[in-house]
């Protein structure tokens, strides 16, 4: 599956609904395999006003959609866009029929020059989060093929929850997160490899997109 995610911040939030409608129509016309276009929820951090997440059968289809999307996300009505193009295969599904949940995405940038073995350890440990934190119902960790925005985003960490309380509660509070995984992010820890600037964004989800 070839995916594209954009976190769009508008200069004027009043433009959100017409933009969302235009993006949805574009995704439909480009035969998106799955798409999620929704306003972000309060608590997102550098997460934009509108979350756009679309999946396609091939890279060419994804890239054609991305090219058609770019003009919609340019101009004075748009304050900023962060995003990634990536290829993902589902890492895990505890609840493939999840409905009326929450989709969350984290864009992160690993330092240039970080060795492959260390990155592999970070990825393996991150993929174990759902083992210890069952509130993560479906998940996928992917490397970015292309990034746009404030950083050279290297990874996309996507999760789905039954509700926002799963993200704000178990995900944030479980020791596997703060006492194990966070050392890759914490500037006070010598193991840190992830840039402090992150995009943390989440929105309501009708049906699973992972």
């Amino acid at each position: 599956m070839f995916k594209l995610t954009r976190l769009v911040t508008l200069a004027d939030p009043a433009g959100l609904e017409p933009l969302a409608e235009a993006v949805c129509a574009l995704a439909t016309s480009h035969m998106a395999y799955r798409s999620l276009v929704a306003p972000t929820l309060p608590g997102s951090h550098f997460g934009g006003d509108l979350l756009v997440h679309c999946a396609f059968d091939g890279a060419a289809e994804r890239d054609a959609f991305g090219a058609a999307l770019s003009p919609l996300l340019a101009g004075s009505a748009i304050a900023s866009v962060d995003g990634v193009d990536y290829q993902g295969s589902p890492d895990g599904k505890h609840d493939p029929d999840l409905a009326s949940g929450v989709y969350r995405v984290l864009l992160l940038s690993i330092d240039e020059g970080c060795d492959a073995e260390t990155i592999a350890r970070f990825e393996a440990e991150t993929r174990m989060m759902p083992h210890y934190i069952p509130a993560i119902r479906n998940w996928q960790l992917s490397q970015a093929d292309r990034a746009v925005g404030e950083r050279r985003w290297t990874h996309v960490w996507e999760q789905e929850y039954a509700g926002v309380e799963g993200l704000r509660g178990p995900y944030m509070l479980h020791p596997y997160h703060w006492a194990r995984i966070d050392r890759w992010f914490d500037p006070e820890c010598p193991e840190r490899i992830v840039d402090a600037r992150l995009c943390h964004s989440f929105c309501a989800l009708e049906t699973s997109v992972l």
């Binding site: 178990p170 479980h174 020791p175 703060w178 006492a179 006070e188 820890c189 010598p190």
Partner: peptide, 20 residues
């Protein structure tokens, strides 16, 4: 030469910390 920072708890605290 080297440095570590790690987080731990006494066994009596584990249940409370994991009850999230």
């Amino acid at each position: 030469v080297s440095r570590r920072r790690f987080f731990a708890a006494e066994p009596v605290d584990i249940e409370g910390l994991c009850h999230v």
